[in-house]
Computed example of a mutant assay.
Amino acid sequence: MKKKRIVLRPTSGLGNRMRAISSFIYFKSLIDAELEVVWIPDSGLNSSYHEIFQPSKHFTLLHPNLGPKLIIKGKTLLNNKFSFIRWLTNVYNTMVCRLMGMDCLLLDKDVKMGTDRLKKVCNDKFNILVVTGNQCIDYPEGFRAFTPSPTVLSNIKVARKKFKENMIGIHIRRSDHDIAIAKSPVYLFENKIEEHLNAEEADFGVFLATDDPALSTYFQEKYPDTVVTYPKTFGRNSREGIMDAVLELYLLAGTKKIYGSYWSSFSGVAKRIYGTELEILHI
């Protein structure tokens, strides 16, 4: 019998890509399919898969070919107010899909419908192309499929030498994330650190992960004996910046408890790597 095949192009940033792959590791078992991943560096994550992760037995990594990149997934065209533009976009995507030898295309809106709906859609399909930064199901076990590259693992080991026995993690998302900035103000994280310090916990420390260099400096100066950060390269446009983001993600995951930012996939992914307790601080 012909084996079903899912070709997944995960999109957006690191957390979104890991969640998408994790969920389709689960979904492939529901429809007895092989999972192939096309990891394409772009402005959201400018790094190849091999630079940050080791190969996984749960899926086959394909060469980043042009086909999946040609698929239009932007809402501006897919949900355009003019029906002709929407029709033309769908025709174009269908043509690209067929030229790739695929007989089914799933985008963000399809993936969000969940596994039951996807099973029905894929019932009589054998070559399924998925282009998404979303997950079809929350599947924490799927994150065990990811192992950092040897270089990243080595740097994690060195960085963890600065960890104290009772280490909590704090993730403060800033940059262009307006929702996190509004819902998770800095004082909430300061209050949480003060709460732990007042409890006089033995060998207590804080690992701070943030995309704001000014905040990193602020917390280190305010809590010099407590807060530990990694001297990373900020930004997603460089290879070094992405490798440091993976390193920071796994350091955060290795703490006793994570205090995260509202509506940030980074905090949620860190929780799922080792099953670390997560509390989102928000107003």
Rank of each mutant, 00 (worst) to 15 (best):
Y187L: 09
I172K: 02
S216Q: 12
T217N: 15
I242Q: 06
G169M: 09
K183E: 06
R160E: 14
P185H: 03
G205Q: 07
D244M: 05
K164L: 07
F234P: 00
I181M: 11
E221L: 15
I172Q: 01
S216Y: 02
A180Q: 07
I181E: 07
I193H: 00
N155D: 10
S184N: 09
G241D: 09
P224L: 09
L188R: 01
P185Q: 11
T151W: 11
M167H: 07
F204W: 02
I170C: 01
P213F: 10
D176A: 06
E165I: 06
D212V: 06
I242E: 07
H177L: 11
F219E: 03
V206A: 02
N191A: 09
E165K: 15
F189K: 05
R173H: 03
H177S: 06
V158T: 07
M243N: 02
T210C: 06
A214W: 09
V186I: 15
E200R: 15
K162D: 00
E195R: 13
I181H: 07
A182R: 13
I168N: 04
K162H: 09
P213I: 10
E221C: 13
G235K: 05
D176W: 09
T210N: 06
Y187W: 08
F207L: 12
T210F: 04
T229K: 13
E195T: 14
T217L: 14
K157P: 01
L208V: 01
N191E: 10
E240H: 12
D225P: 09
T226I: 05
N237L: 15
F163H: 12
K157T: 10
N191D: 12
I179P: 07
A199F: 06
E194A: 12
I168M: 09
I179S: 15
F207S: 05
A199N: 10
L188C: 04
P150T: 01
K183W: 05
I156D: 02
Q220K: 15
D178W: 08
H171V: 01
S184I: 08
M243I: 03
M167E: 08
S175N: 12
N155A: 11
S154K: 14
R174F: 00
E195P: 15
G205W: 05
F189V: 01
I242R: 08
V227D: 04
A159K: 08
H177N: 13
E195V: 08
E195G: 13
L215D: 00
P224S: 04
Y218D: 15
A182K: 14
D244K: 08
A159S: 12
Q220M: 11
